[in-house]
Amino acid sequence: MSAIDINALNVWFGEGDDRNHAVKNVSLKIAKGESFGLVGESGSGKSTVLRTLVGLVDDWDGRMEVDGKVLGRKRDGAFYKTVQMVFQDPYASLHPRMTVDQVLSEVLKLHGFKDVNDRVNRLLEQVGLGGGFRFRYPHQLSGGQRQRVAIARALAPEPRILLLDEPTSALDVSVQAEILNLLTDLRAEFGLTYLMVSHDLGVIGHMCERIAVMQFGEIVEELDVENMRKLSATHAYTKHLLESSLGSVR
């Protein structure tokens, strides 16, 4: 049984004449404990796949399964205990008027945990923030610290699958390294399954075992990371992507 099984997913945005076919016939299978990367440029529909999976987009058809359960139109509490998401921009994903403590406590209460106080402290420790950060507001935190809080929030319900939407693209490289290491450690510790979206092949290559390349809403190629390193892609667009990111990396 796969952790995530997406079959012939189509997603649309807008209505009437403006209805835009954002994701076309996408199929993905991600095994339990695997780390899968979705690569593409802006507008390729890679983030849309994630957002549709968690129920933030309504206009879709196809078949999506998580842990063997078919997803309907509405997601229930049990789903959100299994799947959580980390957003791209840590400056936009935290409520500006809520302290770290409020953010985490609320999430824990929503999921019905009783020992909220202990859990908040434990979560902060897990993401490498001390108790000193507990009562700070987002504007008192740096970008990397905010992203750690966002990761703590995603970890709060003890999910098994984490969807990562460009989790480091808004951060400096040195901070990116810290966050990527944290994500690597967390995956090892909790046996998480990652579905990661990024435009940065270096990051994807570091984090993921298998990748799918998206262009104009379609998956053009799926390959494992070894073949990616050997640059043995078959599709012209993948080759182009690999070459241009090599150009900027080396």
Partner: peptide, 10 residues
């Protein structure tokens, strides 16, 4: 995103 995030917490 912070509203999306709480929606994702149910």
């Amino acid at each position: 995103d912070f509203i999306h995030a709480v929606r994702l917490q149910g």
